[in-house]
């Protein structure tokens, strides 16, 4: 069922923690070049789903395909190497590294310097390092972190830390970018700026984006498609306006009876 124009397809994906079913046989796909939002009340299984897509968890059942390659249960680094970049819900930067170093770490899979080469610092290794630094600087500027290269990640303002996480994810050269609640904790101005940035990403990079988001203004403003999870099950899927009108969604968010009221 993997359509040729889907970058990511998940079929019947299931995750159980002991007796708890966190994600219950979910079918899901991200079309190439689209921005898809995954929403749902707290505890709906969104992050668990994300973690399966990125290999942090092994699904209990089902199958995940990325760019027509079966990635079910593959380790995180292998999935990143195939082209899935991600950010984390609670920022997980390398706090004691500079912004530049953070981005350089993101490039790990795209660089090839080996042990002997690094010790001897061969011309090839030197060239690669120089190129990587150049690209990292460019990525930082692109992500709105001009002049922050040598600042420690932990000393950056909150909004910039979020941006750095995206820059670092972009450094992995993803085809699909997963953003886990990217605007959480941002003030309205930061949120607006960030939304613009995501729009710019889509317009300028060959990138599909899947994000978990709670801010409905962001979700409705930018998504091509919205998928709603509740108690681990997919309860609705469609364009933002369709989902907004869906009774089960309203029920999940506001409680039974709210739809008819």
């Amino acid at each position: 069922m993997s359509a040729a124009d889907d970058i990511l397809t998940a079929s019947d994906v299931r995750k159980e923690f002991g007796g708890l079913v966190a994600v219950n046989d979910v079918d899901f796909s991200v079309p190439r070049g689209a921005i898809v939002s995954l929403i749902g009340p707290n505890g709906a299984g969104k992050t668990t789903f994300f973690n399966m897509l990125t290999g942090v968890y092994k699904p209990t059942g089902g199958r995940i395909e990325f760019a027509d390659i079966d990635v079910t249960g593959k380790p995180p680094h292998a999935i990143t190497e195939l082209g899935v970049g991600r950010t984390f819900q609670n920022i997980r930067l390398f706090q004691h590294m500079t912004a530049l170093e953070n981005v350089l770490v993101g490039m790990h899979a795209r660089l090839s310097s080996g042990i002997i080469g690094s010790i001897l610092r061969t011309p090839g290794v030197r060239r690669e390092e120089r190129g990587a630094r150049e690209r990292a600087r460019e990525l930082l500027r692109y992500s709105g972190l001009r002049g922050r290269d040598d600042e420690l990640a932990r000393n950056l303002p909150y909004g910039d830390q979020r941006r750095l996480e995206v820059a670092r994810a972009l450094a992995t050269e993803p085809k699909l970018l997963l953003l886990d609640e990217p605007t959480a904790g941002m003030n309205p101005r930061e949120t607006a700026a960030f939304t613009d940035f995501v729009g710019k990403l889509r317009a300028e990079q060959e990138l599909s984006i899947l994000m978990i988001e709670h801010d409905m203004k962001v979700v409705m403003g930018i998504s091509d498609r919205v998928t709603v999870l509740d108690y681990g099950e997919k309860i609705a899927e469609g364009s933002p306006t369709e989902v907004q009108r869906d009774e089960r969604v309203i029920e999940a968010y506001l409680g039974a009876g709210a739809a008819s009221a």
Partner: peptide, 26 residues
Amino acid sequence: RLRDSRLGRAWIAIREDETAAAAMGI
């Protein structure tokens, strides 16, 4: 030399946060 290389960065990244390091393709 190793500390200042791609491998050294990866080691320090692992020391700081394994999960994030793996998500960066290490």
